[in-house]
Amino acid sequence: MKPILLYLFLVGVPVLAVSEVLRAGQRLRPPVFVEGTWMIERDAGAEASCSDDVISSDSTVLTISQSGPHLVLTLNGRNRTTLEGEIHDAKITAVTAGFASLSSPDSQGAAVPEIQLNATVERTSGSDRLLGALVFNPCPSITATPFSAKRQTTGPLQER
């Protein structure tokens, strides 16, 4: 009898606890999913500015990798710019973490321009969009470049 009681206590009780934990977890809200490739389009009215090396005048690919709210964003414009940031609710904020000139590889080690990205995820039926602006500091001509981006593909985990 003792082994059965022991089994019920040591195994049965934790099983019940697991089911309670699973129920409690249903209330948690995870971060919005933004991982994948996005195509950035600079707003038509935006002036030529410090952003020219970061996002091209035609279109630039923005790649986002995500771990919970933590994001790593890579802009593949004339130069490759890496930003690190977070997403809370539907708002993304990120700042420069690395910069590499694709046209002149010798520029590695050059001063990293300070760029801040602020964007909001907009959900419409069928497609997701990012609406936001890149803020350059210092920039003599213009400080913020508005942009929008359309999701191209989701991250590798979804492509199954």
Binding site: A24, G25, Q26, L28, P30, G68, Q158
Partner: peptide
């Protein structure tokens, strides 16, 4: 599963169900 209560909002995203 208890650790998941803490880690899910911090390391996962809306694609993945908590369960």
């Amino acid at each position: 599963t208890l650790a998941a209560l803490y880690l899910y909002p911090r390391l996962s995203d809306e694609r993945v169900k908590f369960v």
